[in-house]
Amino acid sequence: MIQATEKSEAGARDMTLFLCGDVMTGRGIDQVLPHPGDPVLHEGYATSALDYVALAERANGPVPRPVEFAYVWGDALAEWARIGPDLRIVNLETAVTTRDDWQRGKGIHYRMHPANVPCLTAAAIDCCVLANNHVLDWGHAGLAETLETLRCAGLQTAGAGRDKAEAAAPAVLSVTGKGRVLVFSFGAQSSGIPPGWAAAAGQPGVNLLPDFSPATLRQIAAQVEAIKRPADVVVVSLHWGGNWGYAVPAAHQRFAHGLIDQCGVDVVHGHSSHHPLGIEVYRGRPILYGCGDFLNDYEGIAGYEAYRGDLSLMYFLTIDAAGGTLLRLRMIPMQTRRFRLNRASAADTRWLRGVLDRAGRHLGSRVEAGPGGSLALRW
């Protein structure tokens, strides 16, 4: 009944997209799934992915092993079923591979065993954006296996490829009776992507932004214009900036505005920050500067506790598919405990609301309490 009520609020041409920040199903989470990969790590902090399982258990209690593929999504599954988004788009920040060509000089390496890819399909994810700082943690061969594994699982990808053309190509997602969503994925060096990871002619890699200049905007505008049809909704997914802090760099705001003004972009989907950042609605188009981590294995790691990295958000954006403008943005607060997403408590929801409201005020947005413990954006 709730799902039917929510659907009836939207017009026939309205489209609801689910977006979130970083989804890290590798390392510790991979170890509790049915087919754990080799746990050996090459990090200064830990030498085994099982160390992250131990940290989580020390903080919040035993994690069952092995868990079912759907376990990690926890209460998010009920929210997806209740709201029924037309598409689910995530930043998948892990390689999906058994390869051992770990990247020397890089401090953290994420890897999920390919046999655990059903944990992604259990969430009915439609598109994984890959232009991030972990998809090549296990080399070019690891990237190739990641792309092939996701393709065979029926998951569309954007932002990484076997050459520059494939890495730059958008995912084209069709919604029956409503139209298409084009998802372009870009990464910036400021998020920790090594410059050598850039895809080139004949070289695998990620779709790396050279800079945030007008020339780069012109290049993106040409790419969008070459494929966009009338009534297409265009999403640009950006892995940019540091992990901590609420300030939105002026260069990010200028670039996001340019994507909307010059490139025909309808949704700017930012990530890399480990916690949610403020939200702007510019010319009717939403800019999520940083969605925060959605799922990770960071439980029990000390440092930055004031940012409450255990809390995350499910973002549900209802878009006028004909005009590309935002009609409604609803957020569902979650908390990760024992490698599982759980609905956040009332107190944690109030805390998140206050943080997002303060962070968004200078961007022209407010966050209010919504029905059923949700949060609603006002602009």
Rank of each mutant, 00 (worst) to 15 (best):
M1E: 09
M1L: 12
K7Y: 01
E9M: 13
T25Y: 05
I29S: 04
I29C: 02
Q31I: 00
H35Y: 12
P36D: 06
E43S: 10
A49D: 15
A49M: 14
L50W: 14
E57R: 14
W73M: 14
A76C: 12
I83C: 02
L87W: 02
I89Q: 02
N91Q: 03
E93G: 03
T94M: 05
M112K: 12
A124G: 12
A124Q: 15
A124M: 08
L136P: 03
D137T: 07
R151I: 00
G154V: 05
A160G: 02
A165Q: 12
E166R: 10
P170T: 01
L173F: 10
K178R: 10
G179R: 11
G179D: 06
Q189G: 10
P195Y: 00
A199E: 03
A199L: 07
A201P: 08
G202M: 10
Q203D: 03
P210H: 03
D211S: 04
S213W: 02
S213D: 05
P214M: 07
A215K: 07
Q219H: 13
V224P: 03
I227H: 02
I227Y: 03
D232E: 15
D232R: 04
V236L: 03
W240E: 06
G241C: 00
G241H: 03
G242V: 10
W244G: 00
A251T: 14
R254T: 14
D266A: 01
V267H: 08
I287V: 14
Y289L: 15
Y289A: 02
G300P: 08
I301H: 05
Y307S: 05
R308S: 09
R308T: 09
S312G: 10
S312N: 05
M314F: 13
T318L: 09
G323T: 11
F339D: 05
R340V: 03
L341P: 04
W351E: 15
L352E: 04
R358Q: 14
A359R: 14
G364L: 03
G372W: 07
S374I: 11
L377S: 06
